[in-house]
Write a protein that binds this DNA or RNA. Structure first.
Length: 825
RNA sequence: GCGAAAGUGGCGGAAUUGGUAGACGCGCAGGAUUUAGGAUCCUGUGGCUUCGAGCCGUGGGGGUUCGAGUCCCCCCUUUCGCACCA
C-alpha cells in the first residue's frame, strides 16, 4: 500500500533498484585483493546476531542501523569501510528451540540464516556479503577449536573439579557471568552448585591487565564500570589461623581488614570448605553433616538471600587467633561462600555487620577493636562499627589510626609468617564446558596413560556429528557421550584406545574471536591472515548492547590478550572504541511476545520503506539511550523523506527546463543554514548524535522550502549526501537524479562547511531587567555594549522597568543577552 | 543494601554546557486544496490570565548567582548494574 499521492517517491521501487545495483556493482563488497590493498581502512563492527526463527526484531534493526549509519558516514568522509556481518548460531537457545519444534538444528539454522540474510539486505545495511561468518560452519569452528588448543598448550585451559553452576532446566553447567542473581540468565531457573570436572579458561591470570587496560580504551563509561565491578579487585591479606591441637595444620582466610584481627572472635568455614571434616569434633559430626547437606541442597537464590536469618553450626573445633594467641571456635555457615576468597573467614563481629548478626544469633562474643569519635575501648556495640577511628583492645596497636594500623598490623603478621598482603578478585576462571549438543566439540582426547591430549591441529575440525537424539539429561554428561562410534578414538600420542571429550564449548567462545576472522574468510588454511589482521585490526568502532558488558566483551578482551601473548597478533585490546546502543520500548512499555506489542519489521518496511524505518529509528531518541517507538511517530520521517524527494526532483527538473537562463542567486539565509547544518552533522554523527542530526536536516529542509520557494541544486545536493547514511537507497536515487553515475558512497564527499558562512549577520538579543525577560532587540552580530544598551533602552517595555529605578549593574553577554540589574527606589 | 544514570508540554525528545526553556517530530485545533482521505500544503499549539512581553513553569524542598533545566545540599520516584565479595 503506497501512501503516495503525488506520484513521486516510491520507496519499494527505489529500494529494490538500489539493493540490486549494490549487489551487481559490488558496492559494499571487498574482493580478496581489495582487502589487502585498501588504504585509509576503517573497520566498523556490530555485534553479530543470533539468527532466531522469528527473524530480526526491532532491537536488532535499531542496533544495526546505528552502526551502519556510522560506517556509511565514515565512508563518505573518505574511509574504506569494512562492515561485515555474521551469525552466532550455536548455543542452547537454538538447541532448545530445535528440541521444542522437533527440527534438527542442522536443518533449522540454515533456514534461519537465510531469512536473516534476506532481512539484513532489506534494511539496506552496507554489509560485505563476501565476508560473513557462521559459527556453526566447520570451516569456522575448526578455528574456534584451534584457539582452545592454543590456550591448552599454553596452560590457559585447564580441567579441574570445582563447584560449578548447574542449571537444572538447561541441564548443563554455566559460567559465573551467565548466572544472574542466582538464576540462569537464559531460563531464569534457580541455579544449583555441583562438583563436576570442567574445562576452565584461566581468565583470572589476566584480571589485573583486564582492569588496567580499561584506562586506555575508548569505551562507554558505563561498560567500563560494569567490567571493573565484575573483576572486583580488592586489596587485603591472607591470614593463617593454626588449628588447635593439630600441628602444622592451618586455615587461611582472606580479609580486607587485617587491622581488625584482634577482634576476630570466631572463624567460619563455608559448607563446601575441604577442611570442614578435619576440624569437626566427634560430638558435632552429625550436626555438621546435616547442615552441609541442607546447605548444598539449596539453590543459589535461596542461599544468597541477604535478608534471611543466618544459620550455622559449630564444628567443635578451635583455631588460634594469630594476633591474640587465643583459641576461637570454628563454625560452618552458609553465609560464607566457597567461591570467594579462601572460602573461610575470620569473623570480626564488632566491625562487620554479617558477623555481628551471626554472633548475636549464636551468642558469640563481640569485641570492639576500633573506637570511633567519642567511643572508648568498651563502648558497647549495637551494630557493627565500620567507620574510621583508632585501634583499641589491640595490644601494642592501641591508639593507632585505622589507616595506619592496616599496613602496620599486616606487616607485623607477615614478619612472623602469620599472613601476607594480597589482592583478591571477584572474577573467576571462565567455565567453558557445556554438557549439551549444539556447540563445537572441545578438541581433547582423554587417554588413560597420557591424560588429556589436544587433537592434532591437522585433524581439525572435530566435526560435530549429526545425531538425532541430542536431548540433554541430568547426568552431567553431554549427549555426545551416547555416540560411541564418535567418541572412541586412539590416543594421538601413544596410540592406545582413548575417548574424545564429549562436552562442547560455551557459545561465548565462538563470539570471542569472530572479529579476527572476518577479514580472513577467504583464507582456509589459517584462522586469520597475519597481514590482514595487522592492517585491519583492532576494530575501529564496535557497537552492541550493554547486556554483553561483562560477558562477550570481557571474554573477547581475554582471548585477544591471550593470542597476543602467544604471539599470534600484535595488539592486546580488540576494540579501540566501543559504544552501547540503547533499547527500544514501545509506547512506554517493554516489547514482549506475551504482551503482543512486538513490532514486526517486515510490515513496516513494506508500508513505509526501509529508509523511512531507519530514519525513524534513528530519530526517536538518542542512540545510546534508545527510545519509545510510537506507531504514529513514523509519520514525521515519512513526510520528511517525501518532501526531500520532491524538493530535489523539482530542483533538478527546473534546472533542466530553465537551464542557465535563470542563474542561481544564493539566498544568504539558506546558505547560512546549510553551513550550520553541515557543521552540526559533521560534529554529531561521529558521536552518534543521530536524533538531533536528523532534526537539523528537517530544520534545514524547512528553511529551503519556506514560503513555498523552489530549491537550487547547490542547496540540496549536500543534503542528499548528508541523508545518505540514514536513507541510503533514496540518497542513491536522488544522487542519480542529480546526474551522477556512480554510487553516492563512492562518488560523493561529505560536504565541507565554511565557518564564515555559518555566522549570523544579525542577532536577537534578550533584554532582561533583574533576570526577567522584558524584551528582545535585534542588532548586528557582535555589536558593542553601548549599542546594545541604547537599543534596549529605546524599547518601551524596558524603559518602563528602568524608569524610576537605580541602575546597579549591567551584564552584557555579546550576541546573547543584556541584563539590567536595578534597585527600585 | 551498594553503585550508576535519569526525572523537561498531551506524547517522543531538544537546549551552543551557567545566558530568551520546550528545537525537531508526533498528536491536537483551525484553514486551503480535494469526489474522498489515515494524502498534500499553510497557521496555531506549556499552564494560568484582568490578554500586559502579566504571573507561574524543567520530580519536591533549600542554597549559590545579576541570571539555574544546567552548579551545591537534602528528599522523592523510575530504570539499569552488583548483591552475605569478607
Amino acid at each position: 500500500m503506497s501512501s503516495d499521492g503525488n506520484g513521486g517517491y516510491q520507496p519499494s521501487e527505489v529500494e529494490a533498484k538500489w539493493q540490486g545495483r549494490w549487489d551487481e556493482r559490488g558496492t559494499n563488497r571487498f574482493t580478496s585483493d581489495a582487502l589487502q590493498t585498501a588504504e585509509n581502512r576503517y573497520y566498523q563492527l556490530m555485534m553479530f546476531p543470533y539468527p532466531s526463527a522469528e527473524g530480526l526484531h526491532v532491537g536488532n534493526i535499531f542496533a544495526f542501523t546505528g552502526a551502519d549509519v556510522h560506517g556509511r558516514f565514515q565512508r563518505l568522509t573518505g574511509k574504506r569501510v569494512f562492515e561485515p556481518i555474521g551469525f552466532d548460531a550455536f548455543g542452547i537457545h537454538s538447541e532448545n528451540f530445535a528440541l521444542k519444534q522437533g527440527i534438527h538444528p542442522m536443518d533449522l539454522i540454515p533456514s534461519n540464516v537465510a531469512n536473516f540474510t534476506r532481512q539484513l539486505r532489506q534494511i539496506g545495511g552496507m554489509f560485505d556479503w563476501n565476508h560473513t561468518v557462521d559459527t556453526t560452519d566447520p570451516d569456522y569452528y575448526r578455528w574456534t577449536q584451534w584457539i582452545f588448543i592454543q590456550l591448552f598448550n599454553a596452560g590457559l585451559a585447564v580441567r579441574k573439579e570445582a563447584p560449578v553452576n548447574w542449571c537444572p532446566s538447561c541441564m548443563t553447567v554455566m559460567a559465573n557471568e551467565q548466572v544472574i542473581a542466582g538464576r540462569c540468565e537464559r531460563c531464569d531457573t534457580p541455579v544449583e552448585q555441583r562438583r563436576i570436572a570442567q574445562w576452565f579458561f584461566r581468565i583470572t591470570e589476566y584480571a589485573q591487565k583486564l582492569l588496567d587496560n580499561l584506562e586506555r580504551i575508548d569505551w562507554s563509561e558505563k561498560t567500563k564500570k560494569a567490567q571493573k565491578n565484575w573483576i572486583g579487585r580488592s586489596e587485603g591479606a591472607i591470614l593463617h589461623f593454626p588449628i588447635q591441637d593439630r600441628d602444622g595444620s592451618q586455615i587461611e582466610v582472606f580479609t580486607t581488614r587485617p587491622d581488625t584481627v584482634f577482634g576476630a572472635t570466631y572463624m567460619v568455614l563455608s559448607p563446601e570448605h575441604p577442611m570442614v571434616d578435619e576440624v569437626t569434633g566427634e560430638d558435632q559430626a552429625e550436626a555438621v553433616a546435616a547442615y552441609r547437606k541442607q546447605a548444598t541442597a539449596k539453590d543459589l537464590v535461596a542461599r544468597q538471600k541477604v535478608e534471611k536469618i543466618k544459620t550455622g553450626v559449630p564444628t567443635g573445633g578451635y583455631c588460634v587467633n594469630p594476633a591474640t594467641g587465643e583459641p576461637i571456635p570454628i563454625w560452618v555457615a552458609d553465609y560464607v561462600l566457597m567461591e570467594y576468597g579462601t572460602g573461610a573467614i575470620m569473623a570480626v563481629p564488632g566491625h562487620d555487620q554479617r558477623d555481628f548478626d551471626f554472633a548475636q544469633a549464636m551468642g558469640l562474643p563481640i569485641v570492639r577493636v576500633v573506637a570511633g569519635e567519642g567511643d572508648g575501648a568498651d563502648t558497647p556495640l549495637t551494630e557493627a562499627y565500620v567507620g574510621d577511628g583508632v585501634m583499641v583492645n589491640s595490644e601494642q596497636f592501641d591508639g593507632v589510626a585505622v589507616a595506619e594500623a592496616k599496613p602496620a598490623i599486616g606487616a607485623w603478621l607477615a614478619e612472623t609468617g602469620r599472613g601476607e598482603t594480597t589482592v583478591n578478585y571477584r572474577l573467576h576462571d571462565w567455565c567453558i564446558s557445556r554438557q549439551r549438543y549444539w556447540g563445537p566439540p572441545i578438541p581433547i582426547i582423554h587417554c588413560e596413560a597420557c591424560g588429556p591430549v589436544a587433537v592434532p591441529e591437522a585433524d581439525l575440525p572435530v566435526v560435530l556429528p549429526r545425531v538425532e537424539d541430542f536431548k540433554p539429561d541430568d547426568s552431567g554428561v553431554s549427549p555426545l557421550a551416547r555416540v560411541e562410534e564418535w567418541y572412541r578414538i586412539d590416543c594421538p600420542q601413544c596410540g592406545a584406545a582413548a575417548r574424545r571429550e564429549t562436552d562442547v564449548s560455551d557459545t561465548f567462545l565462538d563470539s570471542s574471536w569472530y572479529f579476527l576472522r572476518y577479514p580472513s574468510t577467504d583464507h582456509h588454511d589459517v584462522p586469520f591472515d597475519r597481514e590482514l589482521v595487522r592492517s585491519w585490526l583492532p576494530v575501529d568502532c564496535y557497537i552492541g548492547g550493554n547486556e554483553h558488558a561483562v560477558l562477550h566483551l570481557l571474554y573477547a578482551r581475554f582471548i585477544t590478550m591471550a593470542l597476543h601473548d602467544l604471539g599470534h597478533i600484535d595488539f592486546d585490546e580488540p576494540f579501540i572504541r566501543f559504544r552501547a546502543h540503547g533499547t527500544i520500548i514501545r509506547e512506554g512499555a517493554k516489547m514482549s511476545k506475551s504482551k503482543g506489542n512486538v513490532i514486526v519489521p517486515d510490515g513496516i518496511i513494506e508500508k513505509y520503506g526501509a529508509d523511512t524505518f531507519r530514519t525513524y529509528l534513528m530519530f526517536l531518541g538518542p542512540y545510546e539511550e534508545g527510545g519509545d517507538y510510537q506507531d504514529e511517530g513514523i509519520q514525521g520521517p515519512h513526510g520528511f523523506l517525501h518532501r526531500l524527494y520532491d524538493t530535489v526532483t523539482t530542483a533538478v527538473d527546473l534546472e533542466n527546463h530553465e537551464g542557465s537562463r535563470n542563474p542561481a542567486v544564493a539566498d544568504p539565509d539558506v546558505e547560512r543554514k546549510l553551513h550550520q547544518t553541515i557543521r552540526q552533522l559533521t560534529r554529531q554523527i561521529p558521536e552518534l548524535g543521530y536524533n538531533t542530526s536528523i532534526a537539523a536536516m528537517m530544520e534545514y529542509l524547512n528553511v529551503v522550502r519556506a514560503g513555498g520557494r523552489t530549491a537550487q541544486r547547490s542547496e540540496v545536493e549536500p543534503l542528499v549526501v548528508m541523508i545518505a547514511p540514514f536513507a541510503p537507497h533514496m540518497a542513491e536515487e536522488l544522487w542519480e537524479h542529480l546526474g551522477h553515475t556512480d554510487s553516492i558512497f563512492d562518488g560523493a564527499n561529505w560536504p565541507a562547511f565554511d565557518e564564515a558562512k555559518t555566522r549570523e549577520t544579525s542577532v536577537k538579543l534578550a533584554v532582561q531587567v533583574n533576570g526577567k525577560l522584558r524584551a528582545t532587540v535585534e542588532g548586528p552580530t557582535g555589536m558593542d555594549q553601548d549599542a546594545a544598551e541604547a537599543a534596549a533602552r529605546s524599547d518601551e517595555n524596558v524603559a518602563r522597568y528602568l524608569d524610576g529605578a537605580t541602575l546597579k549593574r549591567v551584564i552584557y553577554v555579546p550576541n546573547r543577552l543584556l541584563n539590567f540589574v536595578v534597585e527600585q527606589t
